[in-house]
Design a binder for these strands. Structure first.
Lengths: 159, 159
DNA sequence: GCGTTCTCTTGAACGAGTCAAGAACTGGGC
DNA sequence: GCCCAGTTCTTGACTCGTTCAAGAGAACGC
């Protein structure tokens, strides 16, 4: 977990001005990977007291554009954000509770997979989403477990 | 391209009643893979004259639930549907124009990839999306080409 | 042909996200 | 330390894709 100074450095390195909403959102993304926009708005408000949802949306777009955070959006889910960027990792998604966990990529560089015949496409990234059931939902099939927004079950894998 | 009798048989085999909207939507999905709901509503109306958008949404949900069509939704795109089901193929998506093409899966069965360490997840499917630029957009980087809703550039690949 | 059950129509509503205009703030130069 | 230009945030409305609800209509089994 980077501290405030690290986050500030990261913003400046990306050529962005350092503002309280940006620090709050960036901190929240680091603290709670894979959470949705609404939760980030809540986290930012918990830190600052009051931030407009528009500000958070703007901040998230800027951070995504500059590569400081990554936006992911599994089917059927709203947009989620994570601060782990640049290592081309993949995700495990629970069909039952929506929990998302990181899976390391074997190569760590995009694209880690390439179609043997690509029909003229210039492929620059292979996004892999593993669908299944998380440990909690697999064991307790009756009552879905709450999401695991911290991705604490993240493990390495292939590709 | 299956004819009306084939589509009707498919509906009955899935335990569904045969209605004109269902035939029209199923036909449209076969004729135009990877198109969005709005386009399917248009295609259904072209066949039937008038269908409510709600009917098309309902039909698409039923067809998806019974496995007659597959719903795909790349990041940043609305829901799209295709009639190619059961072979666990993947998709190439153009970042520029949004065109989607099919890519055969090497194994043809889910999951074709498995994370070596899954953190307790029971993985049943690995969804792979290859991001890049289609032939048209790669050659003409200035003006994005219109989408390729037929996926005519589909080729086989790995995984 | 009849009745049950499922499906479609109509109309409204919801949630996520975007747009627009103006106020407030940040950072660099003085 | 102060000022100003440019960027960022606030407020409020809006769009778009999708879903919900209730009742009318159609398909299927008998």
């Amino acid at each position: 977990m980077p501290d405030a100074a690290d986050l500030e450095r990261a913003l400046r390195a990306a050529g962005l001005r350092v503002t309280r909403p940006r620090l709050a959102v960036l901190d929240a993304v680091h603290a709670h990977p894979h959470v949705d926009t609404e939760a980030l708005i809540g986290a930012a408000r918990a830190r600052l007291g009051a931030v407009s949802h528009q500000a958070v949306y703007d901040v998230l777009r800027v951070l995504t554009d500059t590569g400081l955070v990554r936006r992911i959006q599994p089917q059927g889910s709203v947009a989620r954000y994570e601060a782990r960027v640049g290592d081309n990792h993949h995700h495990l998604v629970c069909r039952s509770c929506g929990a998302i966990s990181d899976v390391d990529c074997a190569t760590g560089q995009a694209p880690c997979l390439t179609p043997s015949v690509d029909g003229g496409f210039l492929v620059d990234e292979a996004e892999v989403v593993y669908w299944g059931r998380c440990r909690s939902c697999a064991t307790a099939r009756t009552a879905p477990a709450p999401p695991d927004p911290d991705g604490s079950t993240a493990q390495r894998g292939t590709p």
